[in-house]
Amino acid sequence: MNRTVKILHLAALTAAAALFLATTTDVAAQTSRNCGPREAVVTRLAEGYGETRQSMGIGANNAIVEVFASDQTGSWTITVTAPGGLTCLVASGQAFEELAEALPVNESDA
């Protein structure tokens, strides 16, 4: 994976982590619906949806943000794992594509 793709993935992961942390006020409230032990969540994504980890990064408060996706079905899921090991689903959807877009050319002389 080239540097540009890594930067784009990290930017997306950071935005997802920020959104997650901004909208989550109580982790305990999330556990019954969207959270569980990391191993169980990863197993469910693999067995239920054919998703594997595509990228990862460190978000706010040392949380691990990961993007899982299936090349066959195009489904994707973003997870955030707290330092204590609790993994929460942040977002999911369809039509996952890996992009390698170039950064825009900066034409200023500065």
Rank of each mutant, 00 (worst) to 15 (best):
V67P: 02
A110I: 09
R44K: 13
Q30L: 14
L99V: 13
T77V: 14
T4Q: 08
A63H: 15
F20V: 02
L103D: 12
T31E: 14
Q72W: 03
R53Y: 01
R44F: 04
W76Y: 12
A16P: 00
L10Q: 10
P104M: 06
L89Q: 12
V105E: 15
A40S: 14
T73K: 01
V5E: 09
A46L: 11
C88F: 07
I58V: 15
M56R: 12
R53P: 05
V42E: 15
A46N: 08
V67N: 11
V41K: 04
L99A: 14
E66K: 03
R33F: 10
E47H: 09
K6Q: 07
P37A: 15
T23P: 00
I64W: 04
G74F: 00
V90R: 01
A16D: 03
F96S: 05
T81M: 08
E101N: 10
E51Q: 12
A91M: 08
G84N: 15
Q72S: 11
R44H: 05
C88A: 06
N34R: 09
V42Q: 08
S92C: 08
N61T: 13
V67E: 14
V90E: 06
E101L: 11
Q72I: 14
L13F: 02
F68K: 00
E39H: 09
M1P: 07
L10K: 08
D71R: 10
S32C: 03
Q94S: 15
E47M: 05
Q54E: 11
Q54R: 11
D71H: 05
T77W: 06
E66G: 00
N61H: 11
L89G: 10
I58A: 09
N106A: 10
N2I: 02
A95N: 15
L45P: 01
